[in-house]
Design a protein around this nucleic acid. Structure first.
Lengths: 153, 153
DNA sequence: TAACTTTGACTTTCTTTGACAATTAGATTA
DNA sequence: TAATCTAATTGTCAAAGAAAGTCAAAGTTA
């Protein structure tokens, strides 16, 4: 008996394949197709389509709301950024972030300007409102999303 | 089933495009064209055509009353970003952020690419670990820092 | 037993609708 | 002429509706 997560994962991947790398999902509709509760879809998205796995997930609530899942292709050019995303893992301090970014700039993987921009988003100043015990995790999350955005243009 | 807001938003933008940057709207007439109640037009104007998004909305009630929507001609980047930072205030939802960024891209204050990058840093996904009651505040903080980084290049 | 999955009640966000208020131009009246 | 009425407009606000998100408890599996 195939697990529900796997079934749903496959359904979404198929949608992505059939649509040039982008799936547009109606959560409750997909849930009823898969015969499960809507929050199961959310679970699959967060465990199988994370930024570390190379996917960008966006959504909006309310009437006409929807979820889009974009697969990011890691072509050679972006190998470095992929490594970087791995290196970030699930937490980075401000200093580590800075070091990683400097390395990326030096190696030519990103421009100086992009490095500055990213740093401004993950600085302690920008994240001042985030409780310090989770700040490094939030920073990691943001940084991975930013890097994927750079890759996916 | 396109969202009504989007349909109306497009109608207004088309009017603006066709009239040298200024749309003159009769609210109830536009409402019946779009097959909705008049207050829907007001809603679209306030969520999609705010000053932070690069538009000036003026109106007059009474007989012969009307609404004019003017797209702000690009003055200078600095001014625009300042407006935007004001509009952000100390909290923004994901959708508001998106709308603001789209306005900035349209008016040429930031590039499409930068818009995408900023959005990726302030998306609900990126901020998923932040407790939801302060997420909008954290988003505002990050977004303002990013815009400041753009200003100070 | 520890990690992962499944479920569902509850929350948050965004949209749509409608009743009612405020404003204005122009017509009518005193 | 000045005051008043009337019809034509937009503005406001809260309730209802339509998604997706959260979280913790219960169930499964390795």
């Amino acid at each position: 008996m195939a697990r529900l997560v796997d079934v749903i994962e496959d359904m979404i991947k198929e949608m992505i394949d059939e649509n040039d790398g982008i799936a547009t999902i109606n959560r409750s509709q997909l849930a009823s197709q898969a015969n499960c509760v809507p929050s199961q879809i959310t679970y699959v998205l967060s465990t199988r389509f994370s930024s570390g796995q190379g996917y960008i997930v966006e959504s909006r609530r309310g009437g006409g709301g929807q979820i889009t899942v974009t697969r990011v292709e890691f072509v050679n050019k972006f190998e470095y950024l992929k490594e970087m995303i791995d290196a970030i893992g699930n937490a980075v301090t401000q200093q580590q972030a800075k070091n990683l970014l400097e390395g990326a700039v030096t190696s030519g993987a990103i421009t100086h300007r992009d490095g500055e921009i990213i740093m401004s988003a993950v600085s302690d100043r920008a994240l001042g409102l985030v409780e310090s015990d989770i700040r490094s995790k939030v920073r990691a999350q943001i940084m991975k999303n930013l890097l994927l955005a750079l890759i996916s243009e």
